[in-house]
Amino acid sequence: MAETIKSTGLRGQSAGNTEICTVGKSGSGLTYRGYDIQELAEKARFEEVAYLLLKGELPTRQELDDYISCLQRSRGLPEALKKVLEQIPSDAHPMDVLRTGTSMLGNLETEQRLEEQQAHADRLLAVMPSMLNYWYRYSHFGERIETETDDTSVGGHFLHLLHGKPASELHARVMNVSLILYAEHEFNASTFTARVCASTLSDLHSCVTGAIGSLRGPLHGGANEAAMEMISRWSSPDEAERQILGMLERKDKIMGFGHAIYRESDPRSAIIQAWARQLAEDVGDTHLYAVSERVDA
């Protein structure tokens, strides 16, 4: 038998060229098409960042207004897609719901020609929160919600559908930042999945469906869910510290720390941390944020 070679997961190997993103170029940086993530998170709307990523340049005021209107008009769900979503049980994995929903949309609104790719991407961006929340509200509460809202932002639209009322300014702002921070990250597993699928000249919905499947795995997406599960077990910072030390001793994996590429810090963390602190004050949180800080410290 040949000697066993430890899998490297292709760490550190270049798998192609890209003009879209740099990750950890100077140890901790992140840029989208040359713009620094900190500046984008502070100054941009998510729709502006989406435009930058999808079309290559920041939009002018008029282009942004038109883009926001385009997304607003594209939030409706076809009846056949609603029927499919209504068949999915409430205990289904929500990532499976999006995978199925995206695949079904590919049957109903099939990409026929390359020139249509931008329009299909915009449509998916607008409709993804609608699919998720339509299924969630129907399967959990038996409600058939109207998914077309007049919210100007993707994040505001998401929270509006989830809670059945328009989001506060603070919550819409935090969602905006969150969506910007997660928008792009070079050749990660799900993006590479999408590129491999695209390289066969497959359609956009197949590429995205495959990417959702890759993001579903707990080593890729799902770390924030695992972190939530962990911090919600502890009622005080002192208890959190005791438990973390025990976990470290047992060599348990602690979710939400470290990174495959960043060596010194993840530039996205401090940004969302500042907003988490502000939200904690806003809701009068007494321990969850403090527990988080103690785990980090």
């Binding site: 890209t18 879209i20 719901v97 961006l125 993804m128 910007i180 928008a183 990250h185």
Partner: peptide, 16 residues
């Protein structure tokens, strides 16, 4: 994680 999809969709499509 589904919110991650709503966001990363933009990066995926840019790479496609």
């Amino acid at each position: 994680t589904p919110i991650f999809v709503c966001s990363r969709l933009t990066g995926w499509c840019a790479h496609i």
